[in-house]
Amino acid sequence: MLANPVIEKELKTKMRGWKSPALISAYLCFLGFIVLLFYLSSRESARYSADYFNPRVALELYNSIAMLQFFLLLFITPAMTAAAISGERERQTLDLVLCTNLSSSSIVTGKIVVSIAHVLLLVTASLPILATVFLYGGIRITDLLLLFGFYLLMALFMGSLGIFCSTLFKKSAVSMIVTYITIFCLISGTPILLAIWHVFIMHNQNAPTLYDAMSFMFSNPVFGFSSLFEGMSRGNMILEIFSMRTYGMPQTTGNFMIKPWMANMAFNLVASVIFILLAAWKINPVKRGLFIRKTEAQKANQLKNQAV
């Protein structure tokens, strides 16, 4: 992977100077501050109650930080990739790479890997802070790993969506806007569709089942994300809003085999692959048509070559 010269170059320039370290430090300070507030307030409330320390606080903290990072990924990843190709086009550096024999898929994957690495670095750097909750129990290490896996696929999806848009539009600003609108539609458009379907097609009969919800919202990152916290979300305002209950469904997903986060992660993976392939196809200047394989002339030529 590191043999990809795009990755090497981007890492070199992105990590140079004071900006990246400053960003990471600022972010960690911010998180540390939140953690401190949480623990202080719990100490404060402990004074007036019988328990010395309420383990719920740790759980709350975990949920809050997880959510904070979720929104961070949601907003930052597209910004990092939605200008990747269009920005090179605007700065007139794209042709210089395209005229080399570097494959267009290497360019695209290089850009994505670097952007994702950059955001995930923020998340990874915060792991120790998140891990303080282990002191109090209530969270398993598998929860943390699953959360991280979810972040990874989400960043991959956001990143490849951004790259795809940046190959589609000449202007970075347009690409950026379209990327964010798409994400917005995934988050708020899919529940609206579900509601419309429920009211106008099903005529408000039974409450939509989890199966119905998933058929509409498998691509909704918030829906998938909140299901990760099933059973833990009580008390957390924002997770509450996006939890099943809000859609008039049973609060837990019960024994249903496929959980929303699974569907969402699968969707993210498949969609990312498609977006990356399309983006690579799009920037290849001498691409063949998607459906027309070879012209007659090329076929004839090939036959001739085979004969020789």
Binding site: P5, K9, T13, R16, G17, R91, T93, T100, N101
Partner: peptide, 18 residues
């Protein structure tokens, strides 16, 4: 155009890698 934030030697190194 040229990439900003890249030195001449690194610029050459990048395209060598490419």
């Amino acid at each position: 155009g040229v990439y900003d934030d890249l030195k001449v030697t690194e610029y050459m190194d990048f395209y060598s890698g490419v």
